[in-house]
């Protein structure tokens, strides 16, 4: 899986920086907590820009190359920012059998973007994801933390309209 590296310049607020430093201070005694630190950093910034990866490496006293290695290995770590509304369509088996590919196609068509990318106004980002464990509701998609189940392609426009 190739990850897109953001070309957007990185900026952080003093609040973000303070939270980030606190996370490093709490975890730097234990190198095995690297992933946990990266997860918290992503919580703070929404993604892992290279500036932050380098600061994690320095803080945890591990090579920057290792941080980058972990960031690119796991699907959850994002190297580019997400849209305001992050859509993920489940392509797990149960959802796929019940037509989630068509739902995903319809969203791509409606927003004019491909999975793994973000609309130009940074409003919606779209991803296809692995089973979210809600197979009883198949096919399923999530927009931020909101779950939409038993979807058909016809539902797409109405749901997206709610986020206008």
């Amino acid at each position: 899986m190739v990850k897109k590296i953001s070309e957007v310049a990185f900026r952080d607020t003093p609040e973000q920086a303070a939270r980030f430093e606190k996370v490093i201070a709490e975890n730097k005694h234990d190198k095995s907590r690297l992933m946990a630190v990266m997860q918290e950093a992503q919580d703070i910034y929404g993604y892992l820009p290279s500036e932050i990866q380098i600061r994690i490496a320095e803080g945890m006293d591990v090579p920057a190359e290792k941080v980058y290695g972990v960031a690119t290995f796991y699907a959850q770590f994002a190297l580019s920012p997400k849209g305001k509304y992050a859509i993920s369509v489940c392509l797990g088996t149960a959802c796929y059998v019940k037509g989630s590919q068509q739902v995903l196609d319809k969203i791509c068509e409606t927003l004019g973007i491909e999975p793994g990318s973000c609309t130009a106004d940074a409003k919606f980002s779209l991803d296809a994801c692995r089973c979210v464990g809600a197979c009883g509701l198949a096919p399923v998609m999530m927009i931020n933390d909101e779950v939409y189940g038993r979807l058909s392609p016809d539902d797409v426009e109405g749901i997206l309209a709610k986020y206008e």
Partner: peptide, 26 residues
């Protein structure tokens, strides 16, 4: 508790342990 980060291979027992140790889950 340790959290995974979306790598299917980490369900394999040795990969899972490598991941708990803070590495790429190979």
């Amino acid at each position: 508790i340790r959290l995974g980060a979306g790598a299917f291979v980490c369900g394999e027992e040795t990969a899972l342990m490598t991941s708990i140790e803070g590495n790429r889950g190979e």
